[in-house]
Design a protein around this nucleic acid. Structure first.
Lengths: 338, 338
DNA sequence: TTGAAAGCGCTAACAC
DNA sequence: GTGTTAGCGCTTTCAA
């Protein structure tokens, strides 16, 4: 068992625990010969510092909490990897928990993590309610929102401009002469995949002088099957669309496959554009044209921002907005919009 | 800030800290009226127990470490979800770290987690070297291997029988009359995706009286592109295969797309079978026939096993082997092998 | 450059 | 049913 304490090392090396502590923590104020003696004692005894005791004494745990809707999602797991890599770089460990975007779970998880004395939290979620804000406000440690919108833009956060990205994608489609562009979106209750992206779609239509046609708007639950179903629904229309914009890549794949299942071809019969540029985008035929959201970077920047906040460094911009772009692949008959 | 301690609550409620501790920990030996008084004081003061102090005093952190090759992998993230769900069920939190299957990182991570006083570890990795075993042996807390092989079968672990699964898949293909069955495998250094699965392939061929043809064996790095490249390589052969078995789904998708890119059809020209049954298998056309590996369950069972070990419960079987089966979809021209 | 000593906030005997 | 009292293993002044 692991019962060697700093005290045992001190005795073994003939010094005080304070000195051992200094050596372990790389404090320069230790005579080299002493340091050597201590190191040897540590080695001999197989001493392993107890981070819990250290945390209690120092009030820092070098651990941050990460609340994520679903780690098995191809989208969020990429974000998580970005978070973890930067955390590792700054010597932090991560406590990871799934929330399923359930408000009660989210609040509960924040409290659990605060009990565990995390030094900060990265929060990925859906809607930020007043209750969320209340909880965030009570937190003694910084919290940054990652790929998650805070209406008021006062909380630290890292995102892209979803509405603008959506607007750009739909505008690019329209510029190719498409008159009937459908959208497969999330529900309007979903701030990003629903509200923001749909707003961009509407605005792009409006600016192109095209009326919104409700029959071209389908709501999906972000699964591949939702895409397949949506395409089936669109194919039943008398006046079918000639292009479809989906708010996630996975649904876009579903659209492509739904079309293919009915003998239609992409991009022959439909131009399809997705959103996110997950790895799925190149794992389909035709490969998917999509809006690039830099998931890994969003995670990485979120964690970097959190380290600054934890160190009480000066932060110029609290609400970081990363750039987006459109990657043209085979699912669209056009490939640039200059 | 959060400076309310158990002592403050005790004073506020007019009881001792021991009583507050009892209330907080749900100890039944507290008079209901007292409990109520304490609860109210807790509420009034906004007291939040400090899990670090509790961990130091009780020597239990209700936290377990999870070492994973890459959380952004569609395969491992599903496993992680299984682990996390069961951990939550048993009131544990998870410290999650990526190892990239790098031995030094793996060993380092184990030590870091032990410093943080985790109550147990779930380890996902590649090869278990002697150094790994040495480290595992030194651990004061239980470690279970998840989707990871320990040659000697002495460490707690949860897997399926990869070799048998591979054997079953290839045998099923051969039973359809295929004479030239190729395999896209990992390197032989990879215990599971390389060695085990390839062994099953060889044995199936052997039992069917077919000689191993080296030109039909391609090694890939588990990416979609590796599948595309492998198919290109196979298409150059004078004597082409009529079926290909891939050791992961993602590579199998690559095979399908590689064939399609060259105007070949699946399953017309090639029967393709994958391995894992990740969500990708149904996100492709034709949908992928594949060996079902219950990733979520492997994660869940691993964590369940760990809880038993942490509780020092009796464990009958240390090396758990979960069942596998083959799911037939559109990428094979046959659909059962009864 | 080093040591002594006082906590950090809680749990867990043990006593009453 | 409740209180007292040692620690848990470490960091961190403060002195020397």
């Amino acid at each position: 068992m692991n019962n060697v304490t700093i005290y045992d090392v001190a005795r073994e090396a003939g010094v005080s625990m304070a000195t051992v502590s200094r050596v372990v923590n790389g404090n320069p104020n230790v005579k080299p010969t002493t340091r050597k003696r201590v190191m040897e004692a540590i080695e001999r005894l197989g001493y392993r510092p107890n981070a819990v005791a250290r945390g209690l004494a120092s009030k820092r745990t070098t651990t941050v909490g990460v609340i994520i809707p679903d780690i098995s999602s191809i989208f969020f797991s990429e974000l998580a990897r970005g978070i973890e890599d930067i955390a590792t770089m700054y010597k932090y460990n991560i406590i990871l928990s799934n929330s399923d975007q359930n408000k009660e779970k989210e609040i509960h998880l924040i409290n659990t993590m605060l009990e565990k004395q995390v030094d900060g939290i990265v929060f990925m979620g859906g809607e930020i309610t007043n209750e969320h804000e209340e909880t965030f406000k009570q937190s003694p440690v910084p919290i940054v929102l990652s790929a998650t919108l805070d209406e008021k833009r006062e909380l630290p956060s890292v995102n892209i401009d979803y509405k603008q990205a959506s607007y750009d994608a739909v505008s690019a489609i329209l510029r190719q002469g498409h008159k009937r562009v459908a959208m497969l979106t999330g529900t309007l209750e979903d701030p990003i995949n629903g509200y923001q992206k749909f707003s961009g779609y509407k605005e792009a239509l409006h600016d192109a002088g095209i009326d919104l046609d409700d029959s071209l708007v389908v709501i999906g639950d972000y699964t591949h099957d939702a895409g397949v179903d949506a395409m089936e629904q669109l194919l039943k229309l008398d006046d079918q669309p000639t292009a479809v914009f989906a708010s996630t890549d996975e649904m876009a794949l579903g659209l492509i496959h739904g079309a293919q299942d009915h003998g239609k071809s992409v991009p022959g019969d439909f131009d399809i554009v997705g959103f996110d540029n997950t790895r799925l985008a190149t794992m389909v035929r035709p490969t998917l044209s999509t809006v690039v959201q830099p998931m890994y970077d969003i995670g990485a920047v979120s964690m970097r921002l959190l380290t600054k906040l934890m160190n009480k460094e000066e932060v110029t911009e609290n609400a970081v907005v990363l750039p987006h772009r459109i990657e043209y692949r085979q699912s669209t008959s056009f490939s640039e919009d200059e």
